[in-house]
Amino acid sequence: MNIYGVVGWKNAGKTGLMERLVSEITARGFSVSTIKHAHHSFDVDHPGKDSYRHRDAGAREVLLASRNRWALMHELHDHEEPPLADLLTKLEPVDLVLVEGYKRDDHPKIEAFRAVTANSLIAPEDETIRAVASDTALELDCPVFDLDDTGGIADFILAEVGL
């Protein structure tokens, strides 16, 4: 599977860019899956629901299924967070996996950057960042796209992975 990341600091526009890229690339006929890294605790389940009660009782995994979708929840308990490479093996084969976050991993990435956040750029110190999508003009040693140039960014990513 081809993998390409979208990284950046908080409020840099990563999720919006991911959403637009998924729409753009799937509209071109490619299959896309995504992985989103969360630095905080999260839950896709709700207290009181049967599946939550199964997990709360101690189940290691709970698979919730309906005619529209299924979701597998895996409790880590005292185990380490799995590396991205292990998570990728959980996905069915697709043309492209877009990864939001995992900025320290070794896959190719594009950095989302918004000037208003006043954060520094990651790209100058990270050779895995192949381009930057920004809301302001930047002088860098890699391609710089307008943050809203979804088509151009999609063209770049697809060319990078050979699609």
Rank of each mutant, 00 (worst) to 15 (best):
N2C: 09
G8V: 00
N11D: 14
A12S: 15
G13F: 08
R20T: 10
V22Y: 05
S23Y: 01
E24I: 02
E24T: 07
T26E: 03
A27P: 03
G29H: 12
G29K: 08
G29M: 14
G29Q: 13
V32N: 07
S33H: 14
I35G: 06
H37V: 14
H37F: 12
H40I: 14
H40G: 02
H40D: 09
S41E: 15
F42P: 10
H46Y: 09
H46W: 06
P47W: 05
K49D: 02
D50F: 04
D50Q: 04
S51E: 03
R55P: 11
D56L: 06
A59S: 10
R60D: 08
R60P: 01
E61T: 11
V62A: 10
L64I: 15
L72V: 08
L72P: 07
L72G: 08
M73K: 03
E75L: 11
E75A: 14
L76M: 15
D78L: 13
P83I: 13
P83A: 12
A85H: 09
T89G: 10
T89H: 09
P93H: 09
V94A: 08
D95A: 01
D95W: 04
D95S: 12
V97S: 11
V97H: 05
L98T: 06
L98Y: 05
V99T: 02
E100G: 10
E100Q: 07
G101R: 09
K103Y: 13
R104M: 04
D105W: 06
P108R: 04
K109D: 10
I110S: 12
E111D: 02
F113C: 07
A115F: 00
S120C: 01
L121W: 00
P124W: 09
P124T: 05
D126N: 15
D126H: 11
D126P: 00
E127L: 11
T128F: 09
I129Q: 08
A131W: 05
A133M: 07
S134T: 01
S134P: 05
D135F: 07
A137N: 02
P143N: 03
D146E: 15
L147F: 03
D149H: 10
D149Q: 06
T150V: 15
I153C: 06
I153T: 02
D155V: 11
I157G: 02
I157K: 00
V161H: 02
L163I: 14
L163F: 09
L163W: 08
